[in-house]
Simulated assay, not measured.
Amino acid sequence: MMVWKCIGALSVANNLTAFSTPIFLSGESGVIHAQSVDENGNIKSMFPIPAGYLNTMKKFPCEKELTTSIGDQEIFGFFIEPDCSFFGPGQDLEEFLLRNIEVIKQSPVTYLSAVRFLGLGVEDEIHAIREVGNLINNGDVRESFVSFEQFCVEKTEQTKNIENLIEQLSESGNFATTHTIVEKLMSLQESFESRHFKQALRACLRNNQVHWIAGDADIKRFVNFLINSGRLKLTETARSILFDQMA
């Protein structure tokens, strides 16, 4: 199996808080490649980057040894200034983004991308859309952009109900309340959006009142529903928090 070494990432500016394109080399070849990813977030192939494109981008180095192969999880690159970078799989990137979210907010376009990547709440996304809109000088264009983007963000009563319950789960102070909230969420599982799976799993991981009883039948069923139906991938830390209790 061919092993690819991540040598850095490409960005459009020197000091831009942003997602970037990881770049790879393999063997003795000096041709720089990027990854092509399938719908499951796994690397399906590597393709050479045209030299002309490379010449228009700023290249940042990957400071740590990082290798991958076809079929492995997608590798992401993210920079908060050149001296604060991330290279790794998506589930680890989520933790990095959440730790640095207040800094990321200073770059509206990147913040909107981060909100969508993390699956944050509808209100967070609408706020981020408005912040991006504020960057547009033309009033008509700004209004059209904000209106269209907000229209694309579903804000139904069901959505608000699910997100309120997830917030309650995150703050639940006892086992009985946790069981009740999980029961209500499971009754709404057909209405879950992609963002809700991530939100709910984070609530389970943050609140020890949830993951301490992860072995209980209803909690176990709920966690498995989030992971399987949401097609979520867990960090090793998250997996040990949840599945050690389930064992």
Rank of each mutant, 00 (worst) to 15 (best):
L135P: 03
G230A: 09
N42E: 08
E65F: 07
S229T: 12
E154R: 08
K58T: 14
G41S: 00
A238K: 06
N55M: 12
V12L: 15
I75C: 02
A51T: 10
F60R: 04
N42K: 12
V122H: 10
M46D: 00
F148V: 07
I241V: 12
S69A: 12
Q73E: 13
T178H: 05
K198R: 13
V132A: 06
I43P: 00
E157K: 12
G215C: 01
F78D: 02
A200I: 01
G41H: 01
A200R: 00
S240K: 14
N137G: 11
M46E: 01
C84Y: 10
K160P: 05
I129R: 02
E95D: 14
F117C: 02
R130I: 02
E74T: 09
F225S: 04
Q209T: 09
V153P: 01
N42S: 08
V109M: 13
Q106M: 14
G173A: 09
G133R: 01
G90C: 04
L135G: 09
G173N: 11
F76R: 00
I104T: 03
R99Q: 10
V223N: 03
F87C: 01
A51D: 14
E167A: 15
I80L: 14
N15M: 05
K64S: 07
E183K: 11
A203N: 10
Q158G: 15
S36V: 08
